[in-house]
Amino acid sequence: MKPARIPEEEYMTSGHVACQGCGATQAMRFALKALGPKTALVIPACCWSVIDGPFPHSSLRVPLFHTAFEAAASTASGLKAGLEMRGDTETTVMAWAGDGGTFDIGIQSLSGAAERNEDIIYTCYDNEAYMNTGIQRSSSTPVGAWTTTTPVAHYKKRPKKKIIDIMAAHSIPYIATASVAFPEDFIRKFKKAKEIKGTRFIHVFAPCPTGWKLPPELSVAMARQAVTSKVFPLLEVTEHGKRWKVWKDFEPTPVRDYIKAQGRFRHLKDEEIKAIEEEVENNWQLLLAREQMSMNLPGLNKEDDDS
């Protein structure tokens, strides 16, 4: 057989208790393949608090510390400091939080850690609602979506919080988005993040078939369409928040197809979908403008750093 497209080593084992087609488990598997065995995880309340399995078992082959919901970034800060004081400077400490633990309850400690430029990777695996508690809206839930707290009669009216903008405003050395549908890109970004010192924030798009009312077999397809419809652009922000680079080399697919495939958007009327399409396009244009702007900043390296 030809060489594997992604590292063959597995640090996540079978037997975990994630739902069928869970994007968050694919994300974990890829991330650990990229980071390798010298990785310690801090996981706040989120699906992964359960997925890993019950005490005294774990489906991960790296050490893991469960922490309180709002405390991923601060616990990781302390863990990294502690390991360093033990003389272990090699271990990558990664906070691994859901969108609730990142966009909402954990944003304070995340902001604190990022401002301090703690030497951690902070990954938000975003499934766009509080899935572990049974699908309640978070500030990452996209506009138009149904959740149990944004019922069809009163679906979510506010747009998803722009976490990348927030993180870029912290001037941290590396920010990226990644999607489980693009494993090579995903792994490249985690490998790149591993080599950088300071706070690295990676926003991972991880579909939740259960919460999105989606057949599980479409999990990866949705992740892919989120990217190709520009709903979830793949990008990197380097040079401490200044250099923006957006991936554009794909064959675009309609936002409508992405929306239509998911039960959580089923109630949307044509004009509502249109409004979402416009919003997606506007955000995309803003992103491109920002990328363009960042190219012309004085003193920044004009060359692509690696990829």
């Binding site: 616990t75 302390g78 863990l79």
Partner: peptide, 10 residues
């Protein structure tokens, strides 16, 4: 929580 993290590192 930072202290918890550090203590968890031993």
């Amino acid at each position: 929580t930072a202290v918890v993290g550090a203590s968890a590192a031993g």
